[in-house]
Structure formats: C-alpha cells, structure tokens
Nucleic acid binder design. Sequence first.
DNA 1: CACTTACTTTGGACAATGTCTAATTCGAGC
DNA 2: GCTCGAATTAGACATTGTCCAAAGTAAGTG
Lengths: 138, 138
Amino acid sequence: MSDLLERLRGRGWRMTAQRRVVAEVLDGEHVHLTADEVHSRAVAKLPEISRATVYNTLGELVSLGEVLEVSTDQRAKRYDPNAHQPHHHLVCARCGAIRDVHPVGNPLADLPDSERFGFTVSDVEVTYRGVCPNCAAA
Amino acid sequence: MSDLLERLRGRGWRMTAQRRVVAEVLDGEHVHLTADEVHSRAVAKLPEISRATVYNTLGELVSLGEVLEVSTDQRAKRYDPNAHQPHHHLVCARCGAIRDVHPVGNPLADLPDSERFGFTVSDVEVTYRGVCPNCAAA
DNA sequence: CACTTACTTTGGACAATGTCTAATTCGAGC
DNA sequence: GCTCGAATTAGACATTGTCCAAAGTAAGTG
Ligand SMILES: [Mn+2]
Ligand SMILES: [Mn+2]
Ligand SMILES: [Zn+2]
Ligand SMILES: [Zn+2]
C-alpha cells in the first residue's frame, strides 16, 4: 500500500494519519468494503477518526481513480482498491461474499446496433450471482 | 394493464383503488420508475394514497414476480413492469434514461470455471452505460 | 525551528430512501 | 347489508450519505 501512498503524495496529496489509515484498511485482494466497514476498521487503528473524514477520503480516492465504487446490492456503496485492472463481480446471494472475476470476450460487442437506441455505449458492468462454496455446504 | 389486474385477482389479490392505481402507473414499455415517482403519479390519480401503500404494493408485485426491482444507479431502486421477458439495461450517464436491451449470446457462458471460485452461478445482470441521442445532441 | 496558511478534520445537523407499527378502514364472500 | 381478515394510513424510526462552520494541522518558507 505504500505504492498507493507514494503515488498520492506525488499528486500533491497532503498526508495525514487519517488518510494513511483509510488506505491501509483498503489494502488487499477481493476487498469490497462499505464506508461504514472502512470506518469501523479505521477506528480500530485510529480511534478519533470521524465518519465524515472516511467519506471524504473515500470520495477523493474515487475521484483520483485509485479506488472504485461498486454497488452489488442496493444497500451501501462498496469501495474496491482493485482499480487498475478492469474486472467484474461474482456475488453470493446468501452471504454477500464478493469475488473479482474476469469473463472472456468483450460484453460490449454482444449488444447489437439494433439494441443501442442511438446511444454511444462506452461501458458495461456485469454482476454474476450465485451461491458460494461455504453457503452451499451449510 | 387489465391483463395484470386479472392475473392478480386470479391469484387471490384483494382489489383496491390504491392497487389499481399503482398497476396503472406501471403500465408501458421501458418503464423504470422509483417508488417516489410511482407515488407522485399515483397521487395525481388518487390523492389520498400513502407512501407506505406504494411501498407495500411494489413489494408485493415484486414478490409475485409481476414487477422487477432494478438498480441502475446507487440511488433509489426502480420498478420495472417488464418482468416476463429477460432483459438487461442501457443507461444514459447524463440524464439517466433507461432502455431495455437484449444482448446476443449467454453472458453466463463467458465466465470460465477457473473464475467461478467454486460458486454455483445462476444469474447475471448486465448494465450498459453511454450517452443517449438527446444528450449527445445537446 | 517557528511561522504561516491553505488544506484537512470534526461533530452534528440535514437529506434521501426505505421499514415498521398500531389504529383505522374496507373489499368481498355470506 | 354484515363480518372479518386483509389493506391502508400517518408518522416514528433506521440506514446511508451530504454539508457546514469551527478548530486543528501538514508542510513549505525563511
Ligand atoms: Mn472488485
Ligand atoms: Mn427493464
Ligand atoms: Zn455465501
Ligand atoms: Zn441522456
């Protein structure tokens, strides 16, 4: 994660204990935390960090393109540090577990012109749903 | 829409003015209204209908499989009467316009076993994003 | 190192969306 | 027309997120 912090400092980001902690919490693979989850974990490392700062920092990381906002359910937005490799998501319908996945082919090509209604289509977002091995065993 | 009302009556649905109005509001193609929008339009036809009833009725229609809940943005859920023909969505990033689309091929087949993490994958949801002709012209 | 200043953080008010409940009303079968 | 279980209602409450004015601080300057 010092990669990320270095890059951010290079972009003129003022470094604070709060921002360092948020960046630390977001480290890892298949990480898709809600703002509230980020806040809880951040508080464990820096008890005085406020909810507003977590929201501010997440918003900035998204603006900078260093974190993605994903919404796999209609509850809270989730924050995804895997911003530099395009991917989609596989979600367990029972427990909510989320994995990053890389389907083959280009889903954009699957939308015929006759189904584009004159839109300029530039992006596609795919969410697979199913049951994870843990939940299937239970 | 009397199709829908007939079907619902057949399923033992008690018919009320409120439910009739909600069903009327949801009639049409490419309809994807929020609960609040449904409420506004319902109030225009039946001024005393309450917010709670709109939420209740929409929830029941979803449970009955007569209306789909779609979330194309991370704001409010949208309610879609086109529940009997599987489809995906094309969304204008500027104005939020939503069209029903039918991509070719089976997107489920595009997810290799090596990318399934042991999940039993049963469903996929695709959202295309772009700019609609109206917004492109402006 | 101390100073300065613009940037950051903070608590709490506020907003948007949705859920729940207890009291009242009502549809529809008899 | 009655009756009764089902539906409606207003409003309290919950969750998620935004905004603001006041206080604190990172980091460049000399
Ligand atoms: Mn991801
Ligand atoms: Mn639709
Ligand atoms: Zn699971
Ligand atoms: Zn548009």
